[in-house]
Structures are given as C-alpha cells and as structure tokens.
C-alpha cells in the first residue's frame, strides 16, 4: 500500500462528508499500541485526520455498516474483502447497495500486529481488489489468486479417526465465545439459532458436543455464502483454524454444483443451497 494512501482516504472522506454524499465514513484509526488499528466511524469532516489506512488494518469493517442502517448513506473504505462483505449483506437484504458508498482500494495483504508476519487470511486472499466500488483510490493491484485448499487437502487425506481426533481437539478448545459469529459478514441474522430458546437447538452447557454442534452448524449456515475473508479465524481467541471448514464447503460446492468461487461476488448467482438444478449430480439413489 502506498505511503500517501492514508492522506488520500482522509481527503476523500472529508469531501464526501462535506458534500453530504455520505452521513458517516467507516475506516480505521490507531489504537493504544503500536501497529494496533481499530475500526472507526467518522461523522464529521473535522475528524477525518483520525483515519489511518495502512498494512496494519487487520479487521474487516464492512459489518459496521449494519449498525448505521437507516442513517443515510454510509461511506466505507473497501478492499476486496470489504467489497465482498457488502455484496454479501446486499444479497442477504441487510443493506441496499445504494445505501453504501465504497471507496475502493487495492490491497496487498495485512500484517500481524505481533511480529509483522503476513496474516494467514491475506495469504489465502482471492480478491485483493474490490469487486464493487463507487470510486477507486490508487491503482488496482495484481491478483495472485493463491491456492487456498492446502489445509483441506491435508485433512482430507487423513483417516477418519485422525480427522475425528483433529476436530475433537479443535472443538474441545472452543470457548463458545461466538467471536467468529460476531465478526462474520455472512452471520447477519438478527437473532442467531444459537441464542434461540428451543429444545435441542444448542445446549447451554460447555463441552465437546456443544462446541462441535456450534462449530459445525455455524460453518454450515454460512458455508454456501462464505466470502472467505478469514475473519472468523483471525478473531478466534483460541486461534482455531476455522477456515478449513469453510474452504472445505466452498470447494465441495464448486465440485458438486460449480463453478463456484465463494459468496459475495457480484456475478455469483443465487446461493447454491437456495437453488437447485434437476440434473444435479445424484448419489443418494
């Protein structure tokens, strides 16, 4: 990312707020420690200098648009992941596209605030440039489209018992904090099944079964809509490799009903599990 990107974004945010094009502008600001960035919603042209856009902006900000629904047009910095998240929210009818003003930027990946290594989610990124935007700041970047199914390949090659052990260990570490849900742009239901007071829906106790139930059902609920932003994995306080469940489903859908690259793409068509073809592959006869 270019050094003057922060300044360019500040200028655009100021113009957009001053002209009344947007009522607020969502970006990042520096947080307490060095290299820490936190989402910020700017409401006044005087505050735009708080904005920072650099390689430490590790959080996805698109979901903050949901908090501003009904408050006029929302400005936002949009990298590939933000743009796909907005498309996701539009497809799920949680915002309309006209209510969001996207200032697109090409992104070359973010760095870990501890140690400065590239983030795993960015190393797997398929769309560094925004898939939709209202204006672009700076140049688009090249799209390396790295192979993202290495982990899936590895787990698929294991014996069932090894896989079971792997996920038993993984789910046993789940703290059921729901951070994965809270950051996920596809998790945009007003009320989550996990919060429903319905017998058997989700146990209220902690344990391997409960966390496996949560982990698998959340993955399945978002599987055919996942934009592969990797936020669930980044936000997980236990550092669990949650994206392996998502990549698995994306690839299965691609192989079974494809071609499919994941959700949140403008030309992706209806969500795969909300549609069907009468000549779908048959394996249950």
């Amino acid at each position: 990312m270019t050094a003057n990107l922060t300044q360019q974004i500040r200028d655009r945010a100021r113009d957009l707020l001053q002209s009344g094009t947007v009522s607020c502008f969502i970006a990042w600001e520096p947080a307490r420690f060095e290299h820490w960035r936190t989402p910020v919603t700017i409401e006044s042209p005087d505050e735009v200098d708080r904005i920072v856009v650099d390689e430490w902006c590790d959080q996805l900000i698109a979901k903050y648009a949901l908090q501003r629904r009904g408050d006029g047009r929302i400005g936002m910095v949009a990298r590939g992941c933000e743009s796909r998240a907005v498309e996701r929210l539009v497809a799920d009818r949680q915002v309309s596209r006209q209510d969001v003003y996207l200032v697109g930027v090409g992104c070359t990946g973010m760095l870990d605030r501890d140690g400065g290594a590239p983030l795993k989610k960015c190393e797997e990124c398929q769309r560094r440039n925004p898939v939709t935007y209202d204006e672009m700041v700076g140049e688009t970047v090249e799209e390396p489209r790295p192979y993202r199914f290495g982990e899936v390949d590895r787990i698929e090659s294991m014996e069932p018992e090894q896989r079971r052990a792997f996920f038993d260990r993984m789910f046993s570490q789940c703290a059921m904090c729901f951070a994965c849900r809270n950051v996920c742009p596809a998790c945009n239901c007003r009320s989550c099944f996990a919060d429903a007071e319905r017998v058997g829906w989700l146990e209220k106790d902690f344990g391997l079964d409960a966390s496996r139930y949560w982990g698998l059902m959340r993955a399945f609920h978002t599987g055919d809509r996942c934009i592969e932003c990797g936020e669930c994995e980044r936000a997980c306080p236990m550092g669990l490799p949650l994206m392996t469940l998502m990549h698995k489903q994306v690839r299965d859908i691609d192989r079974l009903f494809g071609p499919y690259e994941g959700g949140g793409l403008s030309d992706a068509g209806p969500d795969p599990l909300r549609s069907y073809r009468t000549d779908d592959v048959e394996e249950f006869m």
């Binding site: 799920d92 009818r93 239901c189 007003r190 009320s191 429903a196 969500d271």
Partner: peptide
C-alpha cells in the same frame, strides 16, 4: 427473529 433475508422466499 426474522431478518428478512429472503432465503425462505427463494
């Protein structure tokens, strides 16, 4: 509990 996401309509 409804978000109006339209999945049911589809």
């Amino acid at each position: 509990r409804c978000s109006g996401c339209r999945a049911c309509v589809d």
